[in-house]
């Protein structure tokens, strides 16, 4: 299944784009997505250690199950305010 991934800040800078598509075998979790993302883009490994993942604009953890067409955000440490 296709998962839409949006990346931000330093991760976006390293990858040179904001949106990616990752193909995963269902059923898949956030942990599977992390693994697939790092296999495809090993250059973000260090940054990913500090990132949390959102699913459909809500914070998630590694066990969160992904659904076809969901929107995953790769969230580096936030620094608003």
């Amino acid at each position: 299944m296709k998962i839409n991934v949006i990346v931000f800040a330093a991760v976006k800078e390293v990858l040179g784009r904001e949106r990616l598509e990752i193909d995963l075998h269902a059923p898949a979790t956030v942990a599977d997505l992390r693994q697939a993302l790092l296999q495809k883009h090993p250059n973000i490994t260090d940054l990913m250690d500090h990132c949390v993942i959102s699913v459909d604009q809500e914070y998630s953890d590694d066990s969160t199950v992904l659904k076809e067409g969901c929107e995953v955000g790769v969230i580096p440490p936030v620094s608003g305010g």
Partner: peptide
């Protein structure tokens, strides 16, 4: 500052930018 997904870059007088980390 803990939960809202906003990020800032600091731009210095030389124009160099750095992502601000908590």
């Amino acid at each position: 500052k803990q939960v809202v997904p906003v990020w800032k870059q600091e731009i210095n007088q030389q124009g160099d930018s750095t992502w601000v980390h908590p």
